[in-house]
Design a protein around this nucleic acid. Structure first.
Length: 658
RNA sequence: GCGCCCGUAGCUCAGUCGGAUAGAGCGCCGGCCUCCGGAGCCGGGUGCGGGGGUUCGAGUCCCUCCGGGCGUACCA
């Protein structure tokens, strides 16, 4: 056996107000919550008090039971009694509670109380719940989790529009897209924005390369790859030709004021790159509701308004002397006009150009509907009805009737290195008196993708001796392009895939899974062999498991008989049922923690449990006992439905055949 | 200097609010095709960086030390 309760995080219940449940699922059996409710009552009756939490978790070993609680151990201190006695007491009280799904309660040392489920009640309910899964109906949150009210605005991707997207950008997009999917699945109202920094240093660099150095694309060179090349070349030339830096400065100045010929050139450059980014991300099934442009934040007066508000609130001051002389700065709380403090952040430089953070503050205020200004909107591509909406400076004829912004909660998916400027954005909200919005401003920080020495070697990049990894850098040309990685994965898989479409779907899923399975706080040490592997803990394994289940369903006729149960369930069947049963909780934990890897771990456990079942029970198609055959078909059906739901929440395809 | 993150098996990583015997994948060795697709399954393991502390109970909490990464820009 490879799959055990321990492969999942222990699942527990905390007594909270009952989760809101949408009507079609009202009857959904939730054994864990039911036990937790009864346990709470029993603890209260014993006088344990609210400090003793009604914790219910999966039993660590099947012989203990299905669900267990260690609360007698914690209660022992409060009640000054022997934990074994308390456990026995709890067992008696729980046994007296009418819980249909539990057939027996036992006590095990040193003081656990264990629930043993009645398969006749529990198993059909789990299967029915799973077969009811419909993507259009949000899954209700289990006890201990709740749906955030109002709209949640997720900003992700936000790749500078001056180069092709690399795997670092792709990690960002996959995290953001998955978080958005999981939130939607759990009943949240979600808007996804992709912020385009078209007035920053990086677009200016490429502009200098094309306009001042006269660089030209090679024949057949895609535009985004051409720009990547220009970016690297210009960055290199700065070191020997400092005069070029003045050219960049001039470009930035033009962008700040907008409207001129340079601004138009950059706008066009950025548009073309954004199209490339959208195409790249679409290959991974990543879409956006709205593209927001930094140039519009300037052009529509958002920045100016934000600075006015900050000035009026005394949050920013003009430094007259010291190291920040001539700048508009935001000192930390309580420092007033001490503009030289280390914690003081410059928002408008002495040359009059606002920093990125200043624009980000304006944008954040808009996100919450606190600016009193709005963008103009139109569809990004007239040819693409399903494509994103974009902001614009001037009113457009094909105005889009939609309400963007005005969010209750804002999640900014931005790498961990930007924690400092993100904290400044939050500080600005606070200084403007928007305490609640500051609290609802979430910097969803994740660590970067770096290259292992082996990956560096593949790319012909020297990894400094002694270094474990080398950071990606678009500026230095140290990167793995997202499109290239997907192309490699497709090539890798195409030999065994039934057709090109399947190869693409599985390859995209494999790359997504690889980028999602790490904790957000973990640097991904990117390795080609690891990312392209098709066995073990990979996206391919999950999708293959789904196809296997679908294959069984194709071959075994659906006899639609009554849901009779076999007299005894095999351990692998019960393990699978527990995994299916755990889906809602895994999804809810993912939504609450905003952490996709919780869901990847769950999905792998479910797929493993299916493989285990597949290998350790005789083929369903050859099963002669009609009751067993029918039950197992339903079990496979429920597994397939649950796995498909989880895969879709992860942004992966769930193919019936590979 | 200060702040944040990381350190779990040879390698890459799970292990959210402290609970029973710390798990997976890869790699290596050895098994499993009269059977629903073998991209699979089964077996093989003296591992929580070191040291203190709190606790009935610590990979998890506290203190401290050691390694590594990032941030602390009039870049983002």
């Amino acid at each position: 056996m490879r799959l055990h309760g321990g492969a999942l995080s222990p699942v527990r219940a905390r007594m909270c107000s009952a989760a809101a449940s949408s009507l079609p699922f009202r009857a959904m059996l939730d054994v864990r919550s039911t036990i937790a409710d009864a346990l709470r009552s029993a603890l209260d009756a014993l006088g344990a008090g609210p400090d003793v939490e009604a914790v219910v978790e999966r039993s660590k070993r099947p012989e203990y039971g299905d669900w267990s609680t260690p609360v007698a151990l914690a209660a022992a201190r409060v009640l000054r009694r022997n934990p074994q006695q308390i456990a026995a007491d709890l067992r008696d009280r729980l046994a007296a509670a009418p819980i249909d799904a539990v057939r027996a309660w036992t006590v095990s040392a040193p003081g656990y109380v264990n629930a043993h489920l009645s398969d006749a009640v529990w198993a059909p309910a789990v299967i029915d719940n799973a077969l009811q899964l419909a993507a259009s109906i949000a899954l209700p949150m289990p006890a201990g989790h709740s749906v955030s009210p109002g709209k949640t605005l997720v900003e992700h991707t936000a790749t500078n529009p001056n180069k092709a997207a690399h795997i670092g950008h792709l990690r960002n997009a996959c995290i953001g897209d998955t978080v958005a999917r999981v939130l939607r699945r759990t009943g949240h109202q979600v808007e996804v924005d992709n912020y385009i920094d078209d007035t920053g240093v990086q677009v200016a660099d490429v502009t200098v390369g094309i306009r001042d150095l006269g660089m030209q694309p090679d024949p057949d060179e895609p535009f985004d790859q051409f720009c990547s090349r220009v970016y690297v070349e210009v960055s290199r030339r700065y070191e020997t030709e400092p005069a070029l830096l003045q050219r960049r400065q001039a470009v930035l100045h033009d962008l700040e004021h907008g409207g001129g010929e340079v601004a138009e050139f950059v706008k066009d450059l950025a548009r073309r790159i954004v199209d490339a980014h959208l195409a790249t991300m679409r290959r991974f099934d990543i879409e956006y509701d709205l593209l927001t442009w930094e140039s519009d934040i300037i052009g529509l007066g958002f920045l100016e308004r934000a600075l006015e508000l900050l000035r009026a609130a005394g949050a920013i001051v003009h430094a007259e002397s010291g190291k920040h002389a001539g700048c508009w700065v935001m000192p930390p709380e309580g420092l007033g006009a001490d503009t030289d403090d280390d914690e003081t952040k410059v928002l408008v430089k002495s040359d009059g150009i606002a920093t990125y953070t200043a624009k980000d503050i304006a944008y954040q205020l808009w996100k919450f509907g606190l600016l009193g200004l709005d963008f103009h909107y139109h569809r990004w591509s007239a040819a693409d009805e399903h494509g994103p909406t974009t902001t614009s400076t001037h009113a457009h004829t094909d105005a889009v009737a939609a309400t963007f912004g005005r969010a209750q909660r804002v999640i900014n998916v931005i790498d961990a290195r930007q924690a400092y400027p993100q904290s400044i954005v939050q500080r600005a909200l606070r200084r403007l008196g928007h305490e609640r919005e500051a609290g609802n401003s979430i910097h969803l920080a994740y660590e970067v993708v770096a290259l292992t020495p082996a990956a560096g070697k593949v790319l012909g990049i020297d990894v400094e001796a002694g270094r474990e990894v080398v950071a990606l850098s678009g500026r230095k040309g140290i990167e793995v392009r997202a499109d290239d990685l997907l192309d490699r994965a497709i090539e890798h898989l195409s030999a065994k895939a039934r057709d090109a479409q399947t190869a693409h779907a599985v390859a995209a899923g494999a790359v997504r899974y690889y980028l999602l399975k790490f904790s957000l706080t973990q640097i991904i040490a990117f390795d080609f062999d690891e990312a392209l592997r098709t066995t073990g803990d990979t996206g391919v394994y999950l999708q293959y498991a789904h196809a296997r289940a679908a294959g069984i369903l194709r071959k075994v006729p659906d006899e639609a008989r009554d849901a009779a149960l076999p007299t005894r369930l095999e351990p692998v069947e019960r393990a699978l049922l527990h995994l299916i049963d755990g889906y809602r909780l895994a999804l809810a934990e993912t939504a609450t923690a905003l952490s996709p890897s919780i869901l990847t771990v769950y999905a792998f456990s479910l797929a493993s449990a299916l493989s285990d079942f597949y290998e350790h029970t005789p083929p369903v198609i050859r099963e002669e006992d009609p009751v067993v055959r029918s039950f197992r078909r339903r079990l496979v059906d429920a597994t397939r439905a649950t796995l498909a739901d989880a895969l879709h929440a992860l942004g992966m395809a769930a193919p019936d055949q590979v």
